[in-house]
Write a protein that binds this DNA or RNA. Structure first.
Lengths: 215, 215
DNA sequence: GTTTAATTTAAACGAGTGTTTAAATTGAAT
DNA sequence: ATTCAATTTAAACACTCGTTTAAATTAAAC
């Protein structure tokens, strides 16, 4: 046993779990390698550095999710050229849930990693995502913008970042929130339930008419 | 010169700026004390520990903002018992902008600190805020809930956390976002403009009717 | 002016970090 | 069986971190 890819995978599996739970900078390589039951130095041997390990962890999900999500959006829009904003957002649900087939808790882990990434990273991760997956992001922005033509581009810029904040923050603390919700209201929510709760919230916010005479 | 409170204030001023910019764990005491031009050990002498310094930095804003915001909300609701959700959110704008009179860039700094706090803290800050300012938070939640009676409590729990995520994330990266917006769309936004952009977004999301037959 | 307390200072401590090194081990090809 | 490259291993390196210590300095009280 223990062929080449085994150690690499053990590291990735342990790292993604810990990164999602506690964030990147709060997770040491020693903690990762002890959970993975591999030697400390093997991280630098297989990945070169901690930064590259972080990128590899994210890439393993993004390489699956991004094309699937793009395909789904293209399909929906060619089936219905006037797909609503809610339709566009809802289209992302299936590609997200498909990640559970990739690995156990895949959807939650991916969303939490995404959240940690956007929250923590100053530069290297943002750069990595926009340069490697920029064309997908453009497609998403285009689909959203064209489904809500009454929102001017500058306003849409802000609203999409509001949306990113909502998703990222919610997912980074999703575990804690579902626990509180269960304790306080007795309703159990899995990750799909949370996603389906957030979509109407986002759709309403992004598409609300701009009040010209504000202030 | 350099009497007792001078050193303390120099530390707080330097710390809040750096904490807001780079986050708590990414800001070392050595960086703070060098910017403040005080000795490294004076942080532990005056504040006891880094954690207590973080709390002191936040308390300096919360002690001003929380009572002012609570008063404003009470005033609005007694003037108009049917104040809308938008009214409630808008009521917070003035207390926020008043922080600019406390210190230069006070509003931005406070909101960014709040964002960093909710993003980074695992326990001690959440505990500090809820135990010291819990009664104000309850008042806010009550005001929001009663302005949107068609949203059941469990759903409101989630939507308020979505809202928290939007605000916190937007503010933590507000500087970067205003720069991009200026470069890409040529429109300059100060902190007040961003606040006034986010309020309609939040109001629409929080108050959107619940779709019973979702899924 | 002397005493006493408060504050500032330089230095070190101990623990933790990512990374590198060089030797040991493994697996496959000859 | 031997060679050779790939991989794993234990150890050390160089650095940063928050915190503590004990001496030096400053300010206040008597």
């Amino acid at each position: 046993m223990a062929n080449r890819s085994d150690t690499k995978t053990r590291i990735l599996d342990a790292a993604e779990k810990l990164f999602a739970e506690r964030g990147f900078s709060e997770t040491s390589l020693r903690l990762i390698t002890s959970k993975a039951e591999v030697n400390l130095a093997s991280v630098n041997y297989h990945f070169g550095s901690k930064k590259e390990l972080i990128r590899a962890v994210l890439a393993r999900y993004l390489d699956v999710f991004m094309p699937a999500a793009a395909d789904a959006i293209v399909a929906v829009r060619s089936a219905d050229a006037n797909a609503s904003l809610d339709d566009i957002f809802s289209t992302l649900v299936n590609p997200l849930l498909e990640l559970n087939k990739l690995r156990a808790e895949g959807t939650t882990t991916f969303l939490q990693l995404l959240g940690r990434g956007y929250i923590e990273s100053q530069g290297h991760l943002r750069w990595f995502i926009t340069t490697h997956y920029g064309k997908y992001l453009s497609l998403f922005v285009k689909a959203v913008s064209e489904s809500t033509p009454h929102i001017p581009p500058a306003e849409m810029f802000w609203r999409l970042h509001f949306t990113l904040g909502t998703v990222v923050f919610t997912m980074a603390s999703a575990d804690a929130l579902t626990e509180i919700a269960e304790a306080d209201f007795g309703e159990h929510n899995d990750i799909e339930a949370v996603i389906r709760k957030v979509i109407p919230y986002l759709s309403a916010g992004v598409s609300v008419p701009v009040n010209k005479d504000a202030n």
